[in-house]
Amino acid sequence: MTLAIERTSTGVDSKTSVPQAVRRKRRTERPSWEEPPTLAGEAAKGVTLGGVLLVMLVPLWIILVTSLSTQAAINRAGGLVIWPDGLTFEAYRVMLSDSTVRSALIVSFGITAVGTLLSMAVSVTCAYGLSRRGSLGHRFLLTLMIITMFVNGGLIPTFLVVTGLGGYGQWWSLILPSAVSVFNILILRQFYSTTSVDLIEAARIDGAGDWRILWSIVLPTSRAVTAVMALFYGVGYWNSFFNVMLYMPTDSEKWPLQYVLLTYVNRGNGMPGSVNSGFGDQFSQTAPLALQMAVVVLTLVPLLIVYPFVQKHFRTGVLTGAIKG
């Protein structure tokens, strides 16, 4: 039995895995045998793709502009603001002076940083440990891992195990249960077992041990896939809110940003932790809509900062395995 993911090449950073000559050059101009494009066809294509882009970008634009608008501008627009018309950072100032948002920001960054580091350390070592053919027990361990992709206990048994281990209200309950993604490990393993084969062989002859090889050869030659995996894990931690609902629903000081967004913006509740200091009073004075949109922007900004650096590694053929799982 071979899993689909083991068959497809992940293709991240194809420079190292595929010889130059084999890579098919992407055509960038119309080959001579192809019919000239019809005007109607090109127009339809442009309109469709343009429409797709607008559907993705316009909401983000509206939210950004509204978060920066004055209350007067919001009143004039009668709600969300589309064209900038009186800009202010007031909403951001109020938001960042609110204790619940501040602690949520720290919690979110903390969980994401610690979780991503831990997940990456565990996954990278495990993927390398399973990537050397013929090593003792690696088939067994691999099967043990793949089984978890098909059968799992489900929500309630997992909840019972975590609470049984004393995880209720503990930070680790937001990190450890989701720290290992077998799927990500398989992608890394696939990559490690095909890349830098000659270098690894040479290093082994020179007497390098496995830790040394992982640290000095495998990691430096697979930066792209490492970056992509770190993004996957990081986004997972940054976006999670359900485990908060399960394990620490009442303790608003431990809420991450997504949960604040859910309670405050999505459900329209006031901020429980800041009735006296933050939003409770300010709600009527500053732009509430601007404030809500500022929280939305705040959850987006870290992603938008990291995304361009990692996105370039998603080239065509990249991570074909990433969707399967």
Binding site: A121, V122, S123, T125, C126, Y128, G129, L130, R132, S135, L136, G137, H138, L141, L144, M145, T148, T158, V161, V162, L165, L176, P177, S178, A179, V180, V182, I185, D210, W211, L214
Partner: peptide, 15 residues
Amino acid sequence: LILMTLPAVVLLLAF
């Protein structure tokens, strides 16, 4: 190599 897989295996066994 086996040692390297241990942390992940322990986490999978637990959760």
